[in-house]
Design a binder for these strands. Structure first.
Lengths: 154, 154
DNA sequence: TATTGTTATACTCTATAACTATA
DNA sequence: TATAGTTATAGAGTATAACAATA
């Protein structure tokens, strides 16, 4: 009769609504911070990704969870602005590795600084509260050892 | 020297990253649930909005934080599928009030059921933990009385 | 034959500007 | 004149399908 016990729980519903608000606000601020550097959200995400590590086009698509054909245009536009460059892969000539340029890394750093969300609001929480929040979010995301998500093949 | 104390705090950084993960996963599941009903994310958001309350076009734009001209197309497509209808406003003939139809409400209900995120993961938390999470998120969002965010004009 | 990246195409979302009809 | 909604337009993201180069 109650396959999902949490479904009709008003407290759970409240938390779900709050998470929705967090998601909305996060997105809003992310797009805003990106726009300040004349970047779209997708461009900002790819640039941030490439700042962490040079990545083949196909793998960018996997991380963005979109089709590989879309990545071509996004990287094109970043490359046209000198924020990213395509490099050949020494081992496989089919592969093009996209990498952030020096300018791209600088832009990404400014972008990161502009992303005040969660940093400013989090300042209102004590150290203990922040670590409680961290633990709760970790458990929500199933990132705890001992609770391996099905679907992880390796 | 340290205008934003939380900036270099590794714990805060960790929480920010976790929130990023929550946002990514929420969006992913939202788009997926919408796609199961042949809806785009924007269409699903508007439909959900109108299920709660019939709303003038202009006000939809404000809630979506987009330009009013965009709403025309989104409501057009929902109306073409019989999920939404435009009604005149008795008091002001300039205004068109968009409202969910019976079919629209039914679709929104299915959509809501498909949105497992946060409900399933939250089931792994105790009642106490969930209320702790609620309180922490509320304070992050500045929704608590006694902590009015600057910028609120009224 | 399979994989990588690209191109071509079509649809949706988005902002901007100009337009219509009401107020 | 100001406001509500729309139209027209252009740019960007998205998926699908077909393609060239390479494995």
């Amino acid at each position: 009769m109650t396959p999902t016990p949490a479904r009709s729980d008003p407290l759970t519903h409240e938390v779900v609504e709050l998470i929705g608000s967090v998601v909305a606000r996060y997105h809003e601020e992310y797009e805003l911070a990106a726009a300040e550097h004349a970047l779209t959200g997708a461009q900002a995400r790819v640039l941030t990704l490439l700042t962490r590590e040079p990545t083949p086009m196909r793998q960018i698509a996997r991380q963005l969870k979109c089709e590989p054909s879309n990545v071509t245009g996004i990287v094109d536009r970043l490359e046209a602005r000198g924020l990213v460059e395509r490099r050949p892969d020494p081992g496989d000539r089919r592969i093009k590795v996209a990498a952030a340029t020096e300018r791209g890394r600088a832009t990404a750093a400014y972008l990161r600084e502009g992303l005040d969300f969660a940093r400013e609001p989090l300042a209102g929480l004590t150290q203990l509260e922040r670590s409680m929040l961290r633990d709760l979010l970790q458990r929500m995301l199933g990132e705890e050892p001992g609770a391996p998500e099905p679907g992880e093949t390796s």
